[in-house]
Simulated assay, not measured.
Amino acid sequence: MSILTYVGAGQMASALTYPVIENGHEVRLVGTPLDREVIDELRKSNFHINLKRTLPDTVKYYQAEEVEEALKGADVVLCGVSSFGVDWFAENILPIIPDDVPMIAVTKGMIDQEDGSMITYPHYWESRLPEGKKLSINGIGGPCTSYELADKDNSAVAFCGRDIEILRKIKAMFTAPYYHVSLSTDVIGVECAVALKNAYALGVSLAVGIAEKNEGIGVQHYNSQAALFGQSVKEMKQLLQLVGGGEENIIYGAGDLYVTIFGGRTRKIGTLLGRGMSFDDAMQELAGVTLESIVIATRTAKAVRRLAENGKVDLADFPLLMHVDDIINNGAQVDIPWKAFETEKF
């Protein structure tokens, strides 16, 4: 039996308690300072108030100030914070994880640099390690929603990291009949692919809102959604090449894009915008909801604009990303740039 300490009681981290417990391991779920109410209810009933599921009976729960106790004897640490908790995790948790305990994160996203380059969260965390400290930092990516994982629907993901042997050991703890894990040492490729899906899922979801605006709530037009999906994959593939990730990783980004479009928080914001609601009003409508799509869309667009200023890319190659950014950050109205998607190939 191994001991796994999860820091962050978000929905995905909490859903990942099921396969690990079923494999006979011990799970200690630690809340961040924002998870206090979640942990309080879990201690009383094992019911997760955000995931809306009852977690396995044997999971042990800790508040943020009890994290050092939860780390004692741990064999693996899982980071379950959202993009908004990346710096909190770097400042408060990374320094106290023992050097010989590998870490794996469900957090998806990238950080833009001044020169227009982008780095993955694992690479960012490595840069934030205290001087002299070494830590194996790995990531999880792929098409998997927390609630369907908790309901044991078949899900296929990738674990990525620098050391394949460490990845194999972690995989053995998580693999279940319904949770299928591939391994990759292409951290940039996997992490970039799955991070980008949030930005583009918002873009595809605009078509959902446009159809509802024109013909009524619940109306679906799949041609327009499919066209935006295809454009998204095209732009994501180009971005993968820009950051130096293997293009085969597009399968994780495209799969994650597909599942995100069909539900969740990013679909909600995209739909509201497509209906004609202003960005500020849509954000107010969804107050209290964590919207990582806004973060990654803004960061990615900022990086691409910097690269364009340096003559390294052409903004015309990213019309959907640029339009999403204009909606979010410049108050633009939704007006899908369909003509910009057209190409001629010889």
Rank of each mutant, 00 (worst) to 15 (best):
L94W: 10
K44M: 12
E41F: 01
G85M: 08
E65A: 02
A64D: 11
K52F: 08
I49E: 09
S82I: 01
P98A: 13
H48S: 05
E66A: 07
W88R: 08
D87L: 12
P98R: 02
N92T: 02
V77Q: 01
R36E: 13
F84G: 05
E41Q: 10
G85V: 10
V101I: 15
E91T: 14
G80F: 05
P102D: 09
D75K: 10
I97Y: 00
D75P: 02
D35G: 03
E66L: 08
L55D: 03
N92G: 03
E91A: 14
D87C: 05
V81T: 09
Q63R: 12
A74L: 04
I39W: 02
D40F: 10
V59A: 05
W88C: 05
L78W: 08
V76T: 04
V59H: 11
E68I: 08
G85D: 07
K52L: 14
E65M: 05
G85S: 14
V77I: 07
D99R: 03
F84T: 13
T58Q: 10
Y61K: 00
G80D: 03
D87V: 11
V86A: 03
L94I: 15
K44A: 10
D57H: 08
L78K: 02
I97R: 03
V86P: 00
D35N: 09
L78A: 11
I97A: 01
V59N: 09
S82E: 07
G73W: 06
T54V: 10
V38W: 05
V38T: 15
E68P: 02
V76D: 00
P56R: 13
A64F: 09
K52G: 02
N50S: 04
D87E: 15
Y62T: 02
V101G: 00
